[in-house]
């Protein structure tokens, strides 16, 4: 078996790389594929928190590289889904503890026994980024519809294009707010795709559920009712090659909004 190695990157921090990694990984594992998530954000690890696995980590990627344990020992199995495992980053070390070749070796080894290896890349374009990208053959670039995030994503795409190993890269637009787009306060999906001229793999709506899910340590794809969860499940399907239409993000009007509308109409009449 040779698995696919996908790096999830963005350039800018705080756009949702880690959330995306956790959710796509969980969604793929739910589909029955064997998935390994690698956190390469040494010193600022978060992926374990999002998956709720912090208390299970004994060995980290640095222990594997420095030969203190075997790779198999360092893989932390998910609480719910045995198909999903995590290779955690060391919290007490920095990016220099790992180099690109070492990470490439780890990816090669994990590829043999898993369908997917997802690499959560740190923010920035320095060594951390270079390490994370080294073993990957595909990339998902996460961005938000803000000028700064788009500018950084553009830079990242340029760097990815320069790498021979990266066969394809796709764009994931995160934290989209349809009502802001409607009122012309936020760039539309089409605008972003046009600016970056990059194929789109998914649109994730802004969802307050993400905050609770992060705090609970439970990826939002496990929540069947959440819109963001649905969007991430669709992204996973697209990763698998299925053609899934993009979600209709026009939210149905809530009860309060309807009442407000009625009052607005009444006022006009009066």
């Amino acid at each position: 078996m040779t698995g696919r190695v996908i790096v999830i990157t963005s350039g800018k921090g705080g756009v949702g790389k880690t959330t995306t990694s956790a959710n796509i990984g969980t969604a793929l594992a739910k589909e029955g594929y064997k998935v390994v998530l690698i956190d390469t954000d040494l010193g600022l690890r978060n992926l374990d928190l999002l998956l709720g696995l912090e208390n299970r980590i004994v060995y980290t990627i640095v222990d594997v590289i420095e030969d203190r344990c075997k790779l198999k020992q360092a893989l932390v199995k998910d609480k719910k889904n045995p198909n999903l495992s995590l290779l955690a980053a060391a919290q007490t070390r920095d990016k220099t503890a790992v180099n690109a070749d070492q990470l490439k070796d780890i990816c090669e080894e994990l590829k043999k026994k898993n369908d997917f290896v997802l690499i959560d890349c740190p923010a920035g374009i320095e060594q951390g980024f270079q390490n994370a990208v080294s073993g990957a053959s595909e990339a998902i670039v996460v961005t938000t519809p803000e000028m700064s995030a788009i500018r950084d994503a553009d830079r990242i795409i340029g760097l990815l294009e320069a790498k021979e190993e990266i066969e394809n890269y796709r764009l994931l637009l995160n934290r989209v707010r349809p009502n802001l787009i409607k009122s012309n306060e936020m760039m539309s999906v089409d605008d972003v795709v046009e600016i970056l001229s990059c194929p789109l793999i998914g649109i994730i709506p802004e969802d307050t559920g993400i905050i609770t899910s992060t705090n609970k340590g439970e990826p939002i794809v496990n929540d069947e009712t959440a819109l963001a969860g649905q969007a991430y499940r669709n992204v996973a399907k697209r990763v698998l090659g299925e053609e899934v239409p993009f979600l209709d993000l026009d939210e149905p009007k809530g009860f309060v909004a309807k009442i407000k509308d009625i009052f607005a109409k009444l006022k006009v009449k009066v």
């Binding site: 709720g52 208390n55 299970r56 609480k79 609970k216 340590g217």
Partner: peptide, 8 residues
Amino acid sequence: ARRNDTLN
């Protein structure tokens, strides 16, 4: 020993 998951 690890902290119980329920005590998150």
